[in-house]
């Protein structure tokens, strides 16, 4: 398995997962994961249903442990600090997440959705809110479409727009890492393409980790890919290498569609 001292190229390691195990009650969902995630690159996690990729990504922002009888063992280091030694709420302000099904706050407007992390986590002035909302919506490639109606309810947007709204909202919190848990699986192909394009831009400022069940998507957007199977990390490396010259037999079987 790849770790800290193997080829990540010139990129420093942003998040370092070490000996991570996650449980639901007695059953173990992921086992002894070691993964180094490079800064300002897109890392994809792929694998068949039930392989633990969602569980893994939810351990990166400490969301997994909020589940019923859920437990985590191991460490996740962010810039050298073990996230599991810090206050969970503060961790989540540094590691943001976008979910599979867009979940904007239905009772709020577009503006209030995007500014929610600022308003709820601090005391921003009106100007600070405006600036942050503008910046976030632009980064999420949504500004042009909503600039005339930021006070409209968030639910008036289409599915793809709502997902970009959720991305904007996550970005407004100014995270260091953005986690995306199958962000396009509920969207149509056009909306998906827009978001994939967006991911390519986001990696200039943020470290992105994306879980996807769509291998072609992983091949399109990511710099590095990790393949999980039955809770274990089978292979991890530069995307091109993993897809064209897979080292493990299991990886090759999955990629060529023999199962999954």
């Amino acid at each position: 398995m790849e770790g800290l001292n193997t080829m990540l190229g010139e990129s420093p390691v942003k998040m370092d997962v070490q000996s991570l195990n996650a449980f639901y009650g007695e059953s173990r969902a992921i086992q002894d994961i070691n993964l180094a995630i490079p800064e300002k690159q897109v890392t994809a996690i792929i694998g068949p249903s039930g392989c633990g990729k969602s569980t893994l990504i939810r351990c990166l922002n400490r969301l997994h442990e909020t589940g019923f009888k859920a437990r985590v063992e191991g460490s996740v280091f962010l810039d050298g600090e073990d996230l599991y030694q810090l206050d969970a709420t503060l961790v989540r302000r540094r590691v943001g997440m976008v979910f599979q099904k867009p979940n904007p706050f239905a009772t709020m407007s577009i503006y209030n959705n995007v500014s929610a992390p600022l308003r709820f986590n601090g005391h921003p002035s009106r100007q600070e809110c405006d600036d942050a909302v503008l910046r976030a919506l632009k980064q999420a490639a949504l500004w042009d479409e909503v600039k005339d109606r930021v006070d409209d309810p968030a639910t008036s947007l289409s599915g793809g727009q709502q997902q970009r709204l959720c991305i904007a909202r996550a970005l407004a919190a100014n995270p260091e890492v953005l986690l995306m848990d199958e962000p396009c699986s509920a969207l149509d192909p056009i909306a998906t393409a827009k978001i994939e394009e967006l991911i390519g831009q986001l990696k200039q400022e943020y470290t992105v980790v994306i879980v996807t069940h769509n291998m072609q998507q992983a091949a399109r957007v990511s710099d590095r890919t990790a393949f999980l199977y039955l809770g274990k990390l089978i292979e991890y490396g530069p995307t091109e290498d993993l897809f064209e010259r897979p080292k493990e037999h299991l990886t090759e079987s999955y990629i060529t569609g023999r199962f999954g």
Binding site: T89, R93, G122, H123, P124, E176
Partner: peptide
């Protein structure tokens, strides 16, 4: 401006304690 917090903290102690209380 530190990442992970859009606003400069008034004091790091306050940031660390506030959520728990």
């Amino acid at each position: 401006m530190t990442r992970g917090n859009p606003f400069p903290p008034r004091s790091s102690r306050q940031i660390l304690r506030a959520p728990k209380w």
